[in-house]
Amino acid sequence: MAGDSAPLSVPSAGVTLAVHRSGTRTGPTVVLLHGYPDDHHVWDRVVPLLDDHDVVTYDARGAGESSAPSARAGYRVERLVDDLVAVLDAVRPDGGAVHLVGHDWGSVQLWAAVFAAGDDPRLRGRIASFVSISGPDLRLYGAYLRTSAREHRWRRLAGQLAKSSYILAFQVPVIPELVVRAAPDRVRQALARSQGLEEDHWADSFGTTAANGLNLYRANAFRSASSPLPEPTDIPVTLVIPVEDDFLSPFLYDGLSHYVRHLSRHEVSAGHWVPWTRPEAVASTVRETVSAAPGTN
């Protein structure tokens, strides 16, 4: 078992990322990326279950120990993909392929990288597989909403829009930041209770991380959802779908096989924070996905 006592500082597109590494360097490299409003600690229960892998976690820009960009444009998906490239260059300078695992916004940004890997020379051949947990590609999310409306699937459309209503609240200027910065403990406790989590699930940096991360939604939600649809990918993808997710409907992924040629789907009886509440299910799925991916280590 090998691990870093302090994070590796990796510069990327105007920020510095805090990168953590554990496990064994001789195993396959697995990169775990958290969502909103988490930092890398959301994987703390998964990482020990993958101790025979080379496990990399990092705090996304604006979260945890990583620095924040100076402008909202610094949170665009393109910059998040730049961050992944910087991390890969730091942990696998040999250009070897890695296995990606993302939750929530971690999954959203990794989808962008997976779909870009066919054309982006920085990523070509460097992604062996992808496990997506509770985070769709934003372009396909937008397509789902448009298709549901066009085909008069009003119940499905209304259900997902209700689950996503918080995104509109996040577009309000200033007020959301003031709330999470002024009363981070109350926000943290309320969210933990609603999701069946321990009240200390989030660290003391919750207020700053949550305030910064609002820009993920403001910089990307409507812009990316109306962007052209991606070309299909050959990278193997495994979906982990918590069927009790308060924020995302399982129906979101129904047409995904048109864009992912090698797709598996695992439903889990859990809520949104499945890496924390069902770490054994996540670790088992990661192991299966890594083992099935061809010709990587």
Rank of each mutant, 00 (worst) to 15 (best):
P250E: 05
L252K: 10
G74E: 09
A128Q: 06
S284L: 07
E65K: 12
V31A: 01
R278E: 12
D44N: 12
S205T: 13
R155E: 11
A211T: 03
D94Y: 11
D204H: 13
E177M: 00
D59C: 13
E199Y: 04
L157E: 06
V237A: 08
W276L: 04
Y259Q: 08
W276E: 01
F222R: 11
D119T: 14
D204N: 09
A73D: 15
V10C: 13
S249A: 11
L138D: 00
P250I: 11
Y253K: 08
G62W: 09
R21Y: 00
F130W: 02
R265G: 02
R45S: 00
E199C: 00
P184K: 08
A143N: 13
R265Y: 03
T57N: 06
S66N: 06
A63L: 11
D89N: 13
D89Q: 14
E151M: 08
R61C: 05
V282A: 02
A73T: 14
L123H: 09
G142F: 03
R153G: 04
H40R: 15
R25V: 10
A116T: 04
Y141A: 10
H41Q: 07
V114N: 01
G14C: 05
G271A: 13
A63W: 08
L8F: 10
R223T: 14
S257H: 15
L178Y: 00
G35Q: 06
T233F: 05
D185E: 14
P236S: 08
T233E: 02
L138F: 10
S194K: 14
V290W: 02
L229R: 11
Q171W: 12
F222A: 10
G62I: 15
E151I: 11
A2F: 15
S226Y: 00
P48L: 07
A117C: 07
A86G: 11
P28W: 05
A117P: 01
P242W: 04
P136W: 03
R223C: 02
L32M: 14
V268I: 15
F251G: 03
I175G: 01
A18Q: 13
L263V: 12
V290E: 02
R218C: 07
R218W: 09
P11S: 10
K163S: 10
V174N: 02
A190D: 06
E65C: 06
T233D: 03
R45L: 05
L197H: 10
T296R: 06
N297H: 09
R79M: 08
Y259V: 09
V268A: 02
D137K: 02
V31G: 00
S165H: 14
H272L: 12
A60R: 13
P93K: 07
G106H: 01
H99S: 15
A221W: 14
D120M: 07
I241S: 04
V47R: 12
L239K: 03
V174M: 04
G3C: 02
H201M: 07
A293K: 06
G125D: 04
Q160E: 15
H262T: 12
R124K: 15
A90D: 09
L33F: 00
V101S: 06
V46H: 01
Y253G: 07
W202L: 07
G95H: 07
A149I: 00
P230N: 08
P11Y: 09
E198F: 04
A162I: 01
A225L: 05
A211I: 04
A143I: 03
T26R: 13
T57K: 05
I235Q: 05
V187I: 15
D200S: 15
D82C: 12
S226E: 13
